[in-house]
Nucleic acid binder design. Structure first.
Lengths: 118, 118
DNA sequence: CTGTATCCATGATGATACTG
DNA sequence: CAGTATCATCATGGATACAG
């Protein structure tokens, strides 16, 4: 990741593999626990989810609230800044979903025009 | 990359490290040659630029025009679909640039509150 | 429950040399 | 000029075990 360009790094964070999913899950203002978030996303390792949440928290997009009880009770939600980010990422995500049919047919056309040497 | 989710793959393509830069360079409707594109982006290996352009071309975002002359003359530009994608990616990129100051200060606050064990 | 630490597989990226 | 081929390197992601 190009460290010389701060905005690029931020962009990578919010559009990262798991970053997109975390933001979209929290977009509705929900305050989810670690395990709930993990189940909602689907298949994601603890390590990756933790790493993604740390990054987004450090960037000021995600708010982490830990209740000092045993067993631990931690919830994650979006900050106002995170809500803005999530809304935009979600919009882009929706657009790609809309564009998917066009992309798929473009791929079919491309593959037809560029046959792999068999 | 999760193959089971087509739209996610498309999102990865347009928000990829070099994909973002290619789309932004071509956003103004320019029709750039391979070497011009490479210089405009800055530091990118031939391999990565080629790979990125192939992916975007296959997805129907980029149009490749090769003139059958020697030496080869190839130009790249955006398709209408690619223009839409580029506009949205660029908008997100601009937003992250705007949000950068807030993110940077959030990081400072986070690092102050979470000192690394020294 | 919510993580952290470790090791390992995989893929992305890059440098270099070469071709039509 | 515009790539392709190859190899080396490095970051990313995941499985597992374990700690507070």
């Amino acid at each position: 990741m190009d460290v010389s360009c701060p905005e690029r790094v931020i962009l990578e964070h919010v559009t990262s593999r798991w970053g997109v999913l975390v933001l979209c899950e929290l977009l509705d203002g929900a305050e989810l626990r670690f395990s709930a978030l993990r189940r909602a996303i689907g298949i994601v390792s603890e390590k990756m989810l933790t790493q993604t949440l740390r990054t987004l928290e450090r960037d000021g997009f995600v708010l982490r609230r830990a209740l000092p009880v045993i067993p631990p009770h931690v919830t994650y939600s979006l900050t106002p800044l995170g809500l803005e980010a999530a809304a935009r990422v979600h919009a882009l995500s929706v657009w790609t979903a809309d564009a998917a049919p066009a992309v798929l047919s473009a791929r079919t056309a491309y593959d037809a025009a560029h046959p792999s040497p068999s």
